[in-house]
Amino acid sequence: MPPLYWLIKFVLLGPFVHTVYRPWIVGDENIPESGPVIIASNHLSFVDSIFLPLLVDRHIVFLAKSEYFTGTGIKGWFSRFFFSGVGQVPIDRSGGKASEAALEAGLRVLAQGRQLGIYPEGTRSPDGRLYRGRTGIARMLLESGATVLPVAMIDTDKVLPTGTVFPKLRKVGVVVGEPMDFSRFAGMEGDRFVLRSITDEIMHELSKLSGQEYVDVYASSVKNRAKPAVRR
Score class of each variant (00 low, 15 high):
Ser125Arg: 01
Thr164Phe: 06
Val175Asp: 03
Ile137Val: 15
Val151Pro: 11
Thr147Phe: 06
Gly145Glu: 12
Gly145Thr: 07
Gly136Ile: 08
Arg170Phe: 13
Leu142Gln: 08
Leu149Pro: 07
Gln112Asn: 10
Gly133Trp: 04
Gln112Val: 00
Gln115Thr: 15
Gly117Phe: 11
Thr135Arg: 10
Gly117Thr: 04
Lys158Cys: 06
Arg124Ile: 03
Gly136Gln: 07
Leu116Trp: 03
Val159Pro: 07
Pro167Thr: 09
Val148Tyr: 07
Val175His: 07
Lys158Met: 13
Leu103Gly: 03
Thr147Asp: 09
Gly173Ala: 05
Ile154Arg: 03
Val159Met: 13
Ala105Asn: 11
Ala138Phe: 01
Leu169Asn: 10
Val176Gln: 08
Val172Gly: 10
Arg124Tyr: 03
Arg170Ser: 13
Leu149Phe: 12
Arg139His: 13
Thr156Tyr: 05
Ser144Leu: 05
Pro126Met: 04
Arg170Glu: 15
Asp127Gly: 08
Leu103Phe: 11
Pro161Lys: 05
Leu130Val: 04
Gly173Lys: 06
Val174Ile: 15
Ser144Phe: 11
Arg108Gly: 00
Leu141Ala: 03
Pro126Ser: 06
Thr162Arg: 15
Gly133Thr: 10
Val109Ala: 02
Gln115Pro: 00
Thr156Pro: 11
Lys158Pro: 02
Gly106Leu: 06
Thr156Gly: 07
Arg124Gln: 10
Lys171Ala: 14
Val172His: 07
Val151Gln: 11
Asp155Asn: 14
Val175Leu: 07
Val109His: 03
Gly173Ser: 08
Glu100Trp: 02
Ile137Thr: 08
Pro120His: 09
Pro161Leu: 09
Val109Cys: 01
Asp155Val: 02
Val109Leu: 06
Ala111Met: 00
Asp157Tyr: 11
Thr123Gln: 05
Arg134Asn: 14
Tyr131Trp: 11
Leu110His: 08
Arg134Asp: 01
Gly163Trp: 01
Asp155Ala: 13
Leu169Gly: 09
Ser144Met: 08
Pro126Phe: 02
Val159Ala: 12
Ala146Gly: 12
Ala152Lys: 02
